[in-house]
Design a protein around this nucleic acid. Structure first.
Lengths: 207, 207
DNA sequence: CCTCTTTCATAGCACTCATTACGAAACCCA
DNA sequence: TGGGTTTCGTAATGAGTGCTATGAAAGAGG
């Protein structure tokens, strides 16, 4: 929600209004970061894809880092719904994992988007200058893992899961497999292959 | 083996010999690529870590791309032994997967190396200029997956595995989980956590 | 209309990028 | 001790990096 502050402040204020569709430009930026990664996407490439000039980018989005972080938010509120939402909606940890895995298989092989997961691939490594961006992505991954672990821990407390079950490992394993599915997608795996990976992973879940 | 050609040609030829330890410099380059990624590691950083000047780097290793590809070879012939070797040594697909998963947990949390897997993280995304490097890494991942699939297919032919088993999915799943373990390691997971992920993944294997 | 505020496009900032001339220095072989 | 060959350190190349100063233009309110 933080990135929206800039967008809100930009709307309805005196002076010349933005001459371009801010949301559309943000979407184009997301696609480019998704495809090429954070540090390895230049501002010149961004302005070309967004069809705006560099000063416009800076007045509308702050700088490259803030633009990226806002694309991450845009990504998380995308069509498939947020990962946390999928977990919340599920009634059991296993169902949450199933939703996450199968939705990932779909999202990572979208027709109108690059392959894989923006959160997984756009800043896997990088220079010290991009440490903040990497930390932000790590934080998101941790949130998802934590939510899944809590959901699964509820199952154990409710007696739906054997007490010796390693719920933390199940959550970490599921998130890890999803990250790996992103790599597979970037390596050319199609939706069917990702779904078979997802179903295989689900076999590790008790119940 | 291809990168060795340059190294072989460099040895025992007329003129002034190299004044530095080529293998040691290569190792330092590997550590830096491992930590920061291919495109996001500059030649200046490389020369500093390798303790050589830029012209020395270029005469000894060709250019940045060939240096990286040679570090990848060096990585694959590292202390843990190659992934393909682990698969070959195993007597069943499940044992191969177990070896891969558990060795990865160790290798991704080494004391003297950056976290995660060089093959997984150093070029997850990037500009078009680095497409060749990404393709090389993709090829390696495919080789490992293929070897694991073949090993597992043998189990099925030998009757050790139910005929309806999806061996391709098992192999793809296992490689994907390993890639995800690399992400987890970079997110700060310790060896114990990776091992618990590995054991959980193993539960998806029949037998 | 005028004023105020903001965005616009042009152009350029200082800096870093990968890569390489250049001449001096070091080694092998004769 | 020479010639031949190569690497050495210094310094620089052109291109690209993220980012911004500048003045003109566009809107809103009076």
């Amino acid at each position: 929600m933080k990135g929206m502050e800039l967008a809100e402040n930009l709307a309805r204020r005196p002076g010349r209004p933005l001459s371009f569709d801010r949301a559309a430009a943000l979407h184009q930026a997301m696609l480019l970061f998704w495809e090429n990664g954070y540090e390895t996407t230049s501002v010149a490439e961004l302005t070309k894809a967004m069809q705006i000039t560099a000063p416009s980018l800076y007045t509308a989005f702050g700088d490259k880092e803030r633009l990226f972080l806002e694309t991450v938010e845009h990504y998380q509120t995308g069509t498939t719904g947020t990962a946390l939402g999928l977990i919340r909606k599920a009634s059991t940890g296993r169902e949450a994992a199933s939703n996450l895995l199968l939705e990932s298989a779909v999202a990572f092989t979208g027709r109108d988007t690059p392959p894989g997961c923006l959160l997984a691939s756009s800043a896997a490594t990088g220079s010290a200058a991009a440490a903040g961006v990497r930390a932000a992505l790590t934080s998101i991954r941790r949130q998802i893992e934590l939510a899944l672990r809590r959901k699964t821990a509820c199952d154990m407390k409710a007696g739906r899961l054997a007490p010796e079950t390693d719920v933390a490992a199940l959550a970490a394993f599921t998130v890890a497999t999803i990250q790996g599915m992103s790599v597979a997608a970037r390596d050319g795996a199609d939706r069917k292959k990702l779904e078979r990976i997802a179903y295989t992973a689900l076999a590790a879940w008790p119940g």
